[in-house]
Design a protein around this nucleic acid. Structure first.
Lengths: 225, 225
DNA sequence: ACAAACCGGAGGAACCACCTCCGTTAGGGG
DNA sequence: CCCCTAACGGAGGTGGTTCCTCCGGTTTGT
């Protein structure tokens, strides 16, 4: 789905470059892993990645010592990106818009990427990187919250830690309902946001229709588990 | 935690009653299973149940043909109970109170019972029973929603299917955060509910404090996975 | 054309959950 | 009180999964 131009071919200066076929396969593996992990999550086997890359498992393990190394290589950038999203939102002029836009972007990032979601929510793999990112985001989020409260747009009893809890709820929902209706989470974010005002007039319009009864049924049936 | 008086000792009329030790163990198993499944969820092994009951695995399997049978025996009543909760809520005079009270009771039931949560959210074990319950709750929930909308207390773009999605979100949160702060879900339910009014004045007070930064850290560290 | 680098994927090792089997224990009718 | 039998415990079989290794064969590039 995400066809990023993987710019990971830099040779660690001093080591022989990979043979042409090896480098080609390396790229295929990274691309396949990106797709498989974002779509099916970190539970996906390296065998699956190999199959998706049109390559043998051995080839994957020759390039990346183990699963964690591959995951780390893939997600470093995306995790950093979460911090950037927070900082960018902070830059917006309107405090309330800044706050809302951050919630939306953060949730969207998690909702569209099962692997990233698992990385942030549970500490599977690469915990240090994740902790570092969280530490960097903390202050930024606090500022977003304080500004929105100072301008009187955000209820006073809201706290910075609530942001992560909300992100978690929406991410869970996205994981559960994603197969049937990838965007429903936006509907419930909208409801929540209406709950975050100190007071308000008319309800804001909901961006996504409610799931149908049929969809609800598919959901439970689909989850096998 | 829940020390229900298990009234499951009725002899199926025509079969010899169990020997005294056998009956005692049967009760121990049911009690232990109730505790283990509500606390740790349906992933718990029957070996765990046996250990908690102070009994060998063989004894468990002699009384219940397999894991599913035990789960079914245990949760039938609790699932039925969910329907009753909906019907009871329906009986309240104030439509908005009825609606809110249902949301709260349903979420509370799931939040306090990992096994029930998994049963309702994913179709593990006993799907028929669950589907039957869902079918019975459907109309009741619709009525709750319609009444609350007719009285002008609930925003018009809310739909009956939203109830289950919200229950799911809160249940996920409860599962994630339950170890650290079993009641946080109430905070977010309160936020959501404030978002469900067509319009409103001051925000209603939040029933639970936000998690502390420390708690948030524990959460991620605790989830191992 | 030859050596070094690389490939594929069968399969080993470790793990886990469910369940079975059988030598041993203990209830309770006679 | 004795003995038959129901019931017990828990070691271990079975099947399934995931991570990773190994080696006979292939490709590359000099």
């Amino acid at each position: 789905m995400t066809a990023q131009a993987q710019e990971t071919s830099h040779v660690p200066a001093g080591e022989r470059p990979l043979r042409r076929d090896a480098e080609r396969n390396r790229q295929r593996i990274l691309a396949a892993a990106a797709q498989v992990f974002t779509e099916r999550g970190l539970d996906a086997t390296l065998d699956e990645v190999a199959r998706a890359a049109g390559v043998g498992v051995g080839t994957v393990y020759r390039r990346f010592p183990d699963k964690e190394a591959l995951v780390t290589a893939l997600f470093r950038e995306r995790i950093d990106n979460l911090v950037t999203v927070a900082e960018d939102a902070c830059a917006a002029a309107d405090p309330w818009q800044a706050f809302v836009s951050y919630l939306e972007h953060a949730a969207a990032a998690m909702a569209g990427d099962t692997g990233l979601r698992q990385l942030m929510m549970f500490g599977t793999y690469d915990r240090d990187q994740v902790c570092y990112a969280r530490d960097r985001m903390g202050p930024v989020i606090s500022r977003l919250v304080q500004r929105a409260q100072a301008s009187g747009d955000l209820r006073g009893d809201f706290e910075a830690t609530d942001v992560k809890m909300i992100a978690f709820m929406l991410a869970s929902l996205a994981e559960y309902a994603g197969a049937v209706s990838p965007d429903v989470w936006r509907r419930y974010l909208a409801l929540l946001i209406d709950g975050l005002r100190p007071s308000r007039g008319a309800a804001s319009p909901l961006p996504v229709p409610a799931p149908t009864v049929r969809q609800l049924g598919e959901l439970m049936r689909g989850q096998q588990r």
